[in-house]
């Protein structure tokens, strides 16, 4: 089929993004809509209460909440950027040879030092 054969890609394959997003939306709306169509909803106050093991919620749910992973997010950011740098490097490292390898090794080593430092500072402790 036209869309799938490898020789006809340029500019056409990316249309699959639109197709897939469309398919996803259609699929989920279809599924939800079908159940809406089939089910006659009933209403009661208890039914709409948020589930908390059968007891009314104490206090507000949306409070200032201690997210334990703020530092994880920072660390992740650093390493994810590193990963993005490595992707193009990985593609060509076989052609560039030893030099690229050593460069990457140095790069990773420095990052690793930073990682060790963060670890020492206790950044990797879940609160």
């Amino acid at each position: 089929m036209y869309l799938w054969t490898r020789n006809h890609f340029s500019g056409v394959g990316s249309a699959s993004l639109v197709v897939l997003i469309g398919a996803g939306i259609v699929f989920s709306l279809l599924a939800i809509g079908l159940s809406r169509f089939l089910v006659k909803p009933t209403w009661s106050r208890q039914k709409l209460e948020p589930y908390e093991c059968g007891v009314p919620t104490i206090g507000k749910t949306w409070i200032q909440y201690n997210v334990g992973y703020y530092l994880f997010a920072l660390m992740f950011l650093i390493f994810e950027v590193e990963l993005v740098f490595l992707f193009p490097w990985a593609v060509v490292v076989k052609q560039l040879g030893m030099v690229a390898l050593i460069e990457a090794a140095v790069f990773l080593f420095i990052l690793f030092l930073g990682f060790l430092y963060a670890h020492r500072q206790g950044a990797l402790k879940w609160m």
Binding site: E52, C53, V55, T57, I58, G59, I63, Y65
Partner: peptide, 13 residues
């Protein structure tokens, strides 16, 4: 700390 969360675990857990 004001950011304490009170959570019911049970009776239906």
């Amino acid at each position: 700390d004001q950011d304490c969360l009170t959570l019911n675990v049970g009776p239906q857990h």
